[in-house]
Nucleic acid binder design. Structure first.
Length: 460
RNA sequence: GCCGUUUUAGCUUAGUUGGUGGAGCGUGGGACUGUUAAUCCCAAGGUCGUGGGUUCGAGCCCCACAAACGGCGCCA
């Protein structure tokens, strides 16, 4: 166990006035060697004989072996500890012993034991590590039904910590560049993406929808804040059953006034590379814990992301004998073929106008194209960022809304952004869960969010 | 919406040409003073997803339904 990179000192200071004084991660880092500690945690596993018992205790910071001897504990405490089943919560007191025989190099020689929250034998903890290993770590129906308990397992704990660092990295990237965090409503009247993927909700006798994106409301605030971002849930009623889709997902979006497509892409690349760097700095142990290749992540953090026009991508695919016609959006099967040889994410730019919604700005140099970009992740994880310049003149936005047969009325506030001092601007949306999934090497996007929502599951 | 696969103990699973359903984990009991997913012995725990059919006989063959999972379209 390595010394925590954020600094042991800081960890102790921030926690010292809490009801819980000692943390397993700190003990394994060696800062309590030889001292008496009181550990509060949960039983991960236990083994031993009638005279000596080894309890592997876990808390949010790690695991440690605790050695309990009958002669030292006394019969009563020893028997109570023997009855502490997997996931029972306990308080153990003892001396920290440096011992090579213990996993992690440290163990607790227990002097007193108290079971706080017992687990009954009739209802043992249903998830066993060995059974999970037999299931190959997969997301079985059983584990999804017991998600609230599955969160306690080592793999999920690692995932959730990595996820936390990714959220933190998004905030720090934007805040370091003087972006303002800004919130949009989740109940909305109109669509951003296709209308067929709207979740309809009854709203006092009217119909409302769950938002698909923060973007339109961000554009309304763009003239006030100029550089803004959010991290918020977006909702899409897609019946997609893939490893990349959720019906409720976390969306990191940004909007910048006076910015070109190229400038927005620079932010997209900067953000993704910053995220990769941050988890390498903050979550090395957790990434190793889920068997992620750190060299791959370093490559994603340290190298520039190439940019390729849609036309080039189509030509490349046609050169590989893939059937594709100009004007088609790239579906996943084609993305996958295109990205299979990528060693870092690639931007695809300048899609045909007919493949994209009305808010994308038409390329003034060639009105068959729009000034947009998608960022495609390697390893088959697909699109992680979509963005571009917005249609910003009043005349053009009205024409594009009418062309696409979209009603004007729900978008009046959006049109007003152009009516009153419209300026060139753009932004992007990043699928946070997709980034978590890709950077952690997960088999499925469900693995990186605590309570996944898809077209067939809203429980637990 | 479409295509495919699966469903056996609390969990993970084996189950041959149709002939009395086995195991590992977990749980209970026992043995063991240093274990590393401890080991060893014993025990409890199964209307084999539901309904129907074929057969002397169905976990296995046929039909219907259900649920779950995987994939596609669409997207972040």
């Amino acid at each position: 166990m390595l010394v925590n990179k954020r600094g042991i000192q800081a960890q102790c200071l921030t926690r010292q006035h809490m009801a819980k004084e000692f943390w397993i991660g700190d003990v394994q880092a060696g800062i309590h060697d030889g001292a008496e500690v009181e550990l509060k945690g949960w039983v991960k596993r236990a083994r031993g004989s009638n005279k000596i018992r080894f309890v592997v205790l876990r808390d949010s910071t790690g695991t440690i072996q605790c050695v309990a001897k009958r002669e030292a504990l006394g019969d009563e405490s020893f028997e109570e500890l023997k009855g502490a089943l997997i996931e029972a919560s306990v308080i153990l007191k003892g001396i920290v012993n440096v011992d090579e025989r213990a996993p992690g190099g440290h163990e607790i020689v227990v002097s007193s034991a108290e079971v706080v929250g017992a687990v009954r034998a009739e209802t043992p903890f249903p998830i066993t590590e060995s059974a999970m290993a037999a299931a190959d770590g997969g997301e079985t129906e059983f584990l999804l039904d017991n998600r609230h308990l599955y969160l306690r397992t080592g793999r999920m704990t690692n995932m959730l910590k990595i996820r936390s660092s990714i959220f933190g990295a998004i905030h720090s990237y934007f805040r370091d560049k003087d972006f303002v965090e800004y919130q949009a409503p989740n109940f909305v009247a109109g669509a951003v993406e296709g209308g067929s993927t709207l979740f309809e909700v009854p709203y006092f006798g009217k119909k409302a929808y769950l938002t698909q994106s923060w973007q339109l409301y961000a554009e309304a605030a763009m003239p006030a804040l100029e550089r803004l971002y959010t991290i918020a849930p977006s909702f899409r009623a897609e019946k997609s059953r893939t490893r990349r889709h959720l019906t409720e997902f976390w969306h990191a979006e940004m909007e910048v006034a006076w910015a070109s497509n190229a400038e927005i892409m620079t932010h997209g690349e900067g953000l993704v590379r910053h995220i990769a760097r941050t988890i390498l700095d903050e979550r090395e142990d957790e990434l190793v814990g889920i068997d992620r290749d750190l060299d791959l992540l370093a490559r994603y953090a340290d190298n520039p992301y190439p940019r390729m026009r849609y036309d080039e991508a189509v030509e490349t695919l046609q050169g590989m004998n893939v059937e594709i016609e100009w004007g088609q959006d790239l579906d996943y099967s084609k993305e996958k073929i295109l990205t299979q040889d990528f060693d870092v994410p690639h931007f695809l730019t300048h899609y045909p106008k007919i493949a994209k919604p009305f808010y994308h700005r038409v390329d003034p140099d060639d009105d068959n194209y729009v000034l947009c970009h998608d960022l495609l992740a390697p390893e088959g994880y697909g699109e992680i960022v979509g963005g571009g310049e917005r249609t910003w003149s009043e005349e053009e936005i009205l024409a594009r809304i009418d062309d696409e047969g979209v009603p004007r009325e729900p978008y009046q506030f959006y049109i007003d952004t152009r009516t009153y001092g419209g300026v060139p601007h753009g932004g992007f949306g990043l699928g946070v869960d997709r980034v978590c999934s890709w950077l952690s090497g997960a088999d499925h996007i469900r693995e990186v969010i605590p309570f996944p929502r898809d077209s067939r599951r809203v429980t637990p």
